[in-house]
Amino acid sequence: MVISLFFFPSPSSLFVNTMSIFNLVALIASGYMEMSGKNQPYAKFSDAGDSNNSKDKEKRKLPSRIGMFVFYAPSFLVGLASFAVFPHQDPRFVMVISVLTIHFFKRILEVLFVHKFSGSMMIDAAITISLSYTVATATMIYAQYLSQESPEPAFDLKYFGLGMFLTGITGNFYHHYILSTLRKKGDKEYKIPKGGLFNLVICPHYMFEVVEFVGVSCICQTVCTFRFTLGTVFLLMGRSHATREWYVSKFDGKFGKDVKALIPYLF
């Protein structure tokens, strides 16, 4: 089969197969909801419709910085712990754990030192998203561990994938940095991003995140990670579409019509 040229055989693990399919469906559904205008309760969408919040609801909110830290910290710890739980593994497995751990460590550093926040989010939303990232990360690592019992795919893509991962994580950071410089200290007004690839797409940071996770899939070469990457693509398509619609409505007549959501000249 063609799939065997590029992927390890799917492991006979009910947990891995169930969770990878569940993650795929959940991510596609989230992307569809974003596309439909039902935005996730964080970032610039977090305060939409919040003007009449009750005092009880306000007590169940977190500052966005803390909420975003909660998103990523458990997944980083899972990656870090995997080095001790699965010692003396093959180079591909070590590479998989490394790139996933680096991905979430970089996210934590950005939350602490790069991003600027002005909103808040619900505690239950932060916990739900954190749990989904943590389970997905653990599932991908465990699927990779099980794949070591199988023959290698005919085409070894791990070093190509490493190049894509490094390109993606670098481009993602660069555009996050540009976003962080838009607002000065104490400034809470949103501005149209300029510089980098923002003249082509409104979410180049998401575009490079897609590149990053395609790279992770090429390093892993497991069906489980491919499903997660495919779901991530659908989620970020929906998220970038929602972001573009927000900018169009927020900056009526000032937002460039030729600026796409995620893919230059196409979408």
Rank of each mutant, 00 (worst) to 15 (best):
E212P: 05
G161F: 04
I192C: 13
F165A: 11
K184Y: 13
Y159K: 00
L197F: 14
K188Q: 11
V210T: 00
K185I: 15
S180P: 11
N199W: 04
G186V: 03
G163S: 06
G168Q: 07
M207Y: 10
G195V: 03
N199I: 11
G196P: 05
G195M: 13
L179A: 10
G161R: 09
Y190R: 15
Y174K: 02
Y177P: 09
F173G: 07
K185L: 10
G171H: 05
N172L: 01
N172W: 00
I219C: 06
Y174G: 08
E209F: 07
V214P: 00
I202E: 08
L166E: 15
Y177L: 07
V216S: 01
E189C: 12
L197W: 14
S217Q: 06
L162N: 00
M164W: 03
E189D: 15
F165K: 05
G196W: 09
T167Y: 01
G196A: 15
T170C: 02
S217I: 05
Y190I: 13
F173C: 08
M164I: 07
S180V: 11
G171T: 03
V216P: 00
V201C: 14
G168E: 06
G163Y: 02
L179M: 05
V210G: 08
Y206M: 04
F213W: 15
I192M: 01
P204M: 06
F165E: 02
E209K: 04
K191I: 10
L179D: 09
D187L: 15
F160P: 01
P204V: 10
N199L: 07
N172R: 06
F213T: 14
G163V: 02
F198D: 15
Y174S: 05
P193D: 12
E212V: 03
V211I: 03
C203T: 10
I202F: 05
I192S: 12
Y190S: 08
F173P: 01
V211H: 00
E209L: 00
E189V: 11
G163K: 04
G168N: 07
Y174A: 12
H205T: 02
I192W: 08
P193T: 12
F165C: 08
G186D: 04
F208K: 06
R183I: 09
F208V: 03
Y159F: 09
I202A: 15
Y206P: 00
C218W: 09
P204S: 05
H205Y: 07
H175E: 13
Y174M: 07
